[in-house]
Amino acid sequence: MRLGGRRRKSSGVSTAQLPAGRTAERPEYDPVRGPSGRTPSENLDPPIPAKDFRRRPLTVGGWLVWGAVAFFLVNLVGLVASVVVNSFAVTWFDTWWPSGLTAQYYSMAWQEMALLDVLVVTLQVSAAVVVLSVLIGVPTAYALARRTFFGKRLITVLFLLPILLPPMTYGIPLATVLYKFDLAGSMTGVIIANLVPSVPFVVLTMTPFIEQIDPKIEAAARMCGANTAAVFGRVLAPLLVPGILAASILVLVRTVGMFELTFLTAGPGSQTLVVSLYEAMFSAGIRAQQAVDAMAVIYTGSMLVLLVIALRFVNPTQLVTRLKE
């Protein structure tokens, strides 16, 4: 029933799945809609009265689900708010609310920890990782999605491993190899280390995305005289944009938040925000707790800005397959 309601609201649904005989079974619509294959979506309704499920009273299960979501969110808000409030606190000990509010710890954190440099490094590293991983990953995903060949399984496993293995396991050997070639401790090293899980991540998310694009579309384009460049540039690329955006955003978020690999390969001038935050937390006691929290707030704030910008362009659920909406 819910699905009936859902389908009624959606318009412009693909009519290709509807067998041609379907309209003949419901001849009362034909005079209105005409006998062509382009049946309007209303004709797809199952013969169940469509109800708007938004107005359905919530069941016990519904309450439980919403309760769980609410509990999770309340604790999450409390967790983030404790950090935010403490970063503004003059002093806060054994009370519900700090004794006074001040912003002085932000300027302290900004100056003492050279946050501007850290932010620039973070930005450069993540931009480089996103662009490179898409450039390397998408062609690979295309080949894996469209062809079956000898050794495909092996290659798939090879791309799965860097995602499935914890960064600490391959991070330690990777860091040595990078040190051996004098790459670690610099920005290049951090970018290379972060690419290792990012490229396979793009491949893994883009392969099912490309698989669900009908190969007949490409065949049709070729039939109409398009060459390879035109097939890629004018047919595939527009269809791939949502997937590439989704993959890029996830890579971006992973890179900015990637602690282990950056931690193992970064030198003094190439620490990203999250690593310098960890260092500040680990050496707690040297600095005021509020200054560390101020840094944490700056980190979260920049991540949130990224996320909000990103979510304007992409629906997070488009990660695997595109929604039929």
């Binding site: 999450l76 967790l79 983030v80 404790s82 950090v83 978020v253 900015v256 938040g257 602690f259 999250v274 935050l277 960890y278 937390m281 560390v292 929290d293 944490a296 980190y299 979260t300 991540m303 949130l304 990224l306 996320l307």
Partner: peptide, 13 residues
Amino acid sequence: VPITLGTVLTAEG
């Protein structure tokens, strides 16, 4: 949103 928090900030919180 929590994905963007990362483990380090979550620990601090």
